[in-house]
Amino acid sequence: MRAVFNKTLLEIAKKDPRIHMVLADIGYGEIEPFRDTFPERYYNVGVAEQNMTGVACGIAMEGNIAVTYSIANFPTLRCLEQIRNDVCYHNANVKIVIIGGGVSYGPLGMSHHSTEDISILRALPNMVVVVPCDNYEAEAATHAMIEYDGPLYYRCGYKGEKDIHSGPVDFKIGKAITVREGKDVTLMFAGPIGLNVLHAAEMLEKEGISCRVVSMHTIKPIDKDAIKDAAENTGGIITIEEHNLSGGLGGAVAEVVCDEGLSPKAFKRIALPDVNVALIGHQEWIREQFGMSAEGIAKQIKETLK
């Protein structure tokens, strides 16, 4: 996904001279084409994420689009106050991009897991939060990110993700995409974990459980209509995300359910538990430990629908 993001951004930047990249010494093997094509619009501030974000804000406030880019929590939590006070308060046209959402960087350890970002970023006024799930969404989301005027958080996957969609998608910020139809339950996911969700839905179909599968690629603003439709026209809502249980996609959907007075027949949030993940292993193995393999998700869905 990161390769798709970088390739797409480069193509857009060829036509849009407002786009600047501001890095904090991260991006080896991916950002070189942008650096070499647009040296006058490429800045490496060194290992200094607070300055990266402040500099990006200053560049953006002068009529440009500034993209900050790093891995995991580095361009979000490390410089959260710069995002809040500088970018969001001034509604600056800064795009905050992370590579490695969730536990993509599994064995690198807790410091490199981005598992609270959705919750924290969506709490900031003016911030849009986008979580593409595969290469098709990654490409379309990059276009949408640049077309949108204002602060936006783009939570990218890592590399080698298999596609969930079968072709290019009609990606609109705030408008969920239905991956497959079903009636017994709606599975709402965000990000590459969606592949396990889709596989779980395929397994359950063989057992006679029909699942609607929806990519909630925008957490903020959330697609209320999709949630309302799922609550009223399917047998319940289950959210799945590679994120802490607190305040992520599941929390955002639950807020809509409560605020809109919806009464889904079943409701569950599948997410990482509220712990610091100290297990050593790769992404898929860590997912499995927390019941988020395709089989684990299918099992939790069945238990919820009992």
Partner: peptide, 24 residues
């Protein structure tokens, strides 16, 4: 030009504005 209040925010933004001025 810019709101501050928490310290350490002004100079990074000023640096960004200086870069933008040079670019322009």
């Amino acid at each position: 030009e810019f709101s501050t209040g928490s310290l350490g925010h002004g100079l990074p933004v000023a640096v960004g504005m200086a870069i933008a001025a040079r670019y322009a």
